[in-house]
Amino acid sequence: MATRNPRSERRNQVLSRERIIETAIELLDAGGEAAMTTRALTERLSTGSGAIYYRVGSRDDLLDAATETLVTAALATDSVVVPSSPEEEIRTVALALFDAITEHPWLATRLTRHVVRKPFGTVTVGIFERIGRQVGALGVPRASWFDAASTLVHYILGAVSQNTRTEGDTPDGSHDRDAFLDATAEAWQDLDAEDHPFMRAVVSQIHAHDDREQFLTGIAVITDGLTRLG
Results as ranks from 00 to 15, higher is better:
residue 1 M to W: 11
residue 3 T to K: 05
residue 6 P to S: 02
residue 12 N to H: 15
residue 25 I to V: 14
residue 27 L to P: 02
residue 36 M to N: 05
residue 38 T to V: 06
residue 39 R to Y: 11
residue 41 L to H: 00
residue 43 E to H: 02
residue 47 T to Y: 09
residue 52 I to A: 05
residue 55 R to W: 11
residue 56 V to W: 10
residue 59 R to G: 09
residue 71 V to M: 03
residue 74 A to R: 01
residue 75 L to D: 02
residue 83 P to G: 04
residue 84 S to N: 13
residue 85 S to Q: 08
residue 86 P to S: 11
residue 86 P to H: 00
residue 89 E to I: 13
residue 91 R to L: 03
residue 91 R to V: 04
residue 94 A to F: 03
residue 97 L to E: 00
residue 99 D to V: 01
residue 104 H to N: 02
residue 119 P to E: 08
residue 119 P to K: 06
residue 121 G to N: 09
residue 121 G to Q: 05
residue 121 G to M: 05
residue 122 T to I: 11
residue 124 T to H: 12
residue 124 T to E: 01
residue 129 E to M: 14
residue 131 I to T: 06
residue 134 Q to Y: 06
residue 140 V to R: 07
residue 143 A to E: 14
residue 147 D to Y: 15
residue 149 A to T: 10
residue 149 A to M: 08
residue 151 T to V: 14
residue 158 G to R: 10
residue 163 N to W: 14
residue 164 T to D: 04
residue 164 T to R: 00
residue 166 T to P: 09
residue 170 T to E: 04
residue 170 T to A: 08
residue 173 G to F: 04
residue 175 H to N: 03
residue 179 A to R: 11
residue 184 T to W: 14
residue 188 W to L: 14
residue 193 A to R: 10
residue 194 E to L: 09
residue 196 H to I: 03
residue 200 R to E: 00
residue 200 R to L: 08
residue 202 V to I: 11
residue 202 V to R: 03
residue 206 I to V: 13
residue 206 I to T: 02
residue 208 A to T: 12
residue 218 G to K: 00
residue 218 G to E: 01
residue 221 V to A: 13
